[in-house]
Amino acid sequence: MGERWQAVDNYIAAKLLGADDALATTLANNAEQGLPPIDVSAAQGKMLFLLAQMAGAKRILEIGTLGGYSTIWLARALPDGGELVTLELEDHHAKVAHQNLERAGVSDKVDIRVGPAAGSLAAMTGEEPFDFVFIDADKQSNALYVAEAIRLGRSGAMIIVDNVVREGGVLEADSDDERIIGTRALFDMLAADPRLDATAIQTVGAKKWDGFVLARVL
């Protein structure tokens, strides 16, 4: 079944996305530099692009840069004068991302901040509010990241959290996997926080069986 999921993603990409040298070069460079192949799929990247455009996003916050593949998609959605702040723990990843953003021609719109995301977020005070937030970092901290996204986002801001189904692992209440524990804590937080209106969608495809949270700040 997994091969068929991949084949359908390939079909979608061929029909609706087409070839993209900058994105292909980004993935190739990430592999050459030893980054893990955990980027969003091409179809998911285009979804992020469209959602950010539909939200009218002028300021975007991304938590988890990796090699900048999703960053490029989001930066392309910004209008002239727009800004994307992306947070990355690993200095090596941030350097690779900078190379990729430069090649893609969007580095002037992107501010990469390196260090633990919790600290980077806590230091963000007095900035203009964000319109759109994409969270794809350590799953253990997802509830914290969403709380910070609410603090830093405007009313009506859109929040996307990736990898929230984990091939059904989210159902495992007795799991000792910190990523599943963190994901379940995220769902508890979403269910209890009156500042958000949220849902979650399961997905299958190149990234296997997973899903994402879509939330709106009230």
Rank of each mutant, 00 (worst) to 15 (best):
R4Y: 15
W73G: 00
G169D: 11
I201F: 14
V161Y: 07
D39M: 11
P36Y: 09
D188Q: 13
E178F: 15
R59N: 02
F132L: 01
G2T: 11
H93P: 01
S141F: 09
V213K: 06
K207D: 08
A198N: 10
M54E: 04
G211N: 08
K58Q: 10
G68M: 08
G153Y: 07
V110E: 00
K139I: 03
E90Q: 13
K95R: 15
G119K: 06
E102G: 04
V164F: 10
D174R: 05
L51W: 10
R103A: 14
R216Y: 01
G18Q: 03
G64K: 04
W73A: 05
K15G: 01
H93A: 04
E62F: 03
A22I: 10
A75S: 12
K109Y: 06
L152D: 09
A13R: 12
P194H: 13
P37W: 14
D111S: 12
E32L: 11
V161T: 12
V40C: 09
D138C: 10
W73D: 06
L186T: 07
I135K: 00
I150E: 08
V114Y: 10
H92M: 07
D136N: 06
I60E: 08
L101F: 01
S120L: 14
D188N: 12
G211K: 01
L101R: 01
K208R: 15
L48R: 06
W209V: 12
M189I: 02
E62Y: 03
I72L: 10
L121C: 00
D131V: 03
A185T: 12
F130M: 02
R113F: 03
E172A: 12
V204R: 08
L66M: 09
L186N: 03
S141A: 14
V96G: 00
G153V: 07
G67M: 07
I63A: 02
M189L: 07
T25D: 13
L121G: 01
A13G: 04
L61N: 02
M124T: 01
R76W: 11
V170T: 03
L35E: 02
F212C: 04
Q53G: 13
L61I: 10
T203Y: 05
K46W: 11
G81I: 11
M1Y: 13
G82H: 00
D162S: 11
I135G: 00
V85Q: 00
P116R: 15
L196R: 05
D162K: 04
Y145K: 04
A13C: 07
A191T: 13
D136K: 12
M47Y: 12
D20I: 15
I38R: 06
A42R: 11
G67Y: 09
M54V: 15
M54D: 08
T25V: 08
E172R: 10
W73N: 01
V8S: 02
D197Y: 10
A147H: 13
A75W: 00
N29Q: 14
F134W: 07
L16G: 02
D197A: 12
Q140R: 14
V204A: 09
L121K: 00
I159W: 05
L23Q: 11
T86P: 00
A55I: 14
I160M: 14
P116V: 14
A122H: 10
T125H: 13
D197V: 14
G205R: 05
E62H: 01
D197F: 10
R195A: 11
R103P: 03
V213Y: 03
D174V: 00
I159N: 05
G56T: 09
D193P: 05
R113Q: 09
A143F: 06
G169H: 05
M158W: 09
A185P: 06
A157N: 05
D80H: 13
A117D: 01
